[in-house]
């Protein structure tokens, strides 16, 4: 009966490794929640940092993160969807399409800190935007672009071919078919892809360190050419560069919890929405 014994043993090992992962994950979440919850109050969420960031809240980094997401998506969503349309509807087999596919795949693998170097040299220095919301937002946009392209292409390819044929049979042209039939059908799925890329962008630190994130800014940025505070960078600053690292621990935990809620909240919405859409299709 040793074969059966081995089979049971293997199952036990597999169950254990999955359970370990879940337990570690849950305890980490619980730990952050327990430590962060104390810091969070209405004041913490709505006041800017005070007294060399040892007191007050984190309203400026929260708003800065939203501004960064907004700028990055304003660039990445239209370009990403258009590129997705290109791959799904217009691309013909050839050197250009092959090169473009290769580029998208490679861009998806470029380390985030290298995006930071790229943003620094292109947006901050070459285009003379300086270190600001615009530079950092565009850098994040470039990072999100491959994600949105892939999501859009997959969504468009999932639209049944019959829809296109029906539209052509009614005398519609290619662009009319794409605009009026294919794109609307794929739009919900494309948007969930965009939501998921928001989750990724909001938590990124490395690309914005030298393109537009401020160590400290007294006010919310009022133009694209001002520096902004951002939640992830704020955590790093408080935990590594401040003079009051131990004293500001509660603020650090609070900021971590807020960042986690923002990122995980947005990502959960994306994941759940996508699961719903998939089920509907079946």
């Amino acid at each position: 009966m040793s074969r059966k014994y081995v089979d049971r043993l293997a199952s036990a090992v597999l169950w254990t490794s999955a359970a370990t992962l879940v337990i570690v994950l849950l305890s980490v979440m619980a730990y952050i929640l327990a430590n962060g919850a104390e810091a969070i109050s209405w004041e913490f969420l709505t006041q800017p940092p005070r007294d060399s960031m040892t007191k007050g809240g984190i309203s400026t980094p929260i708003i800065g993160t939203f501004q960064l997401v907004l700028v990055s998506m304003t660039f990445a969503v239209p370009v990403g969807i258009a590129t997705g349309i290109f791959f799904a509807e217009y691309a013909s087999a050839g050197i250009f399409t092959t090169m473009l596919r290769l580029c998208v795949r490679c861009l998806a693998g470029v380390p985030s800190v290298v995006y930071g170097l790229f943003g620094l040299s292109l947006f901050v220095i070459f285009l003379r935007f300086g270190s600001c919301l615009l530079s950092a937002g565009l850098t994040l946009g470039c990072l999100a672009l491959p994600l949105i392209i892939t999501a859009s292409e997959t969504a468009l390819l999932a639209v049944p071919q019959d829809f296109r044929l029906a539209s052509y049979a009614l005398g519609a042209g290619k662009w009319q078919t794409v605009k009026k039939v294919v794109l609307p059908a794929a739009m919900p799925t494309i948007l969930t892809g965009a939501i998921l890329s928001v989750g990724r962008v909001a938590g990124e630190t490395a690309p914005i360190i030298f393109t537009g994130a401020a160590f400290f800014a007294p006010n919310v940025a009022k133009s694209l050419f001002q520096e902004v505070m951002a939640l992830p960078y704020h955590i790093m600053v408080l935990a590594t560069a401040g003079t009051h690292i131990e004293q500001t621990r509660p603020i650090q935990y609070g900021t971590v919890l807020v960042l986690l809620m923002v990122v995980m909240g947005v990502s959960s919405v994306g994941i759940i929405a996508r699961a719903r859409l998939r089920r509907k299709r079946k």
């Binding site: 239209p78 258009a82 590129t83 217009y90 473009l100 790229f118 040299s121 470039c142 672009l145 392209i149």
Partner: peptide
Amino acid sequence: PGAVITAIASVSLVIMVFLLYFLLQ
């Protein structure tokens, strides 16, 4: 529209080229 879509799609290519160019430069 096809030409416009193709032009926008080339943005990825442009980013890749710029990325390589600036890192090398």
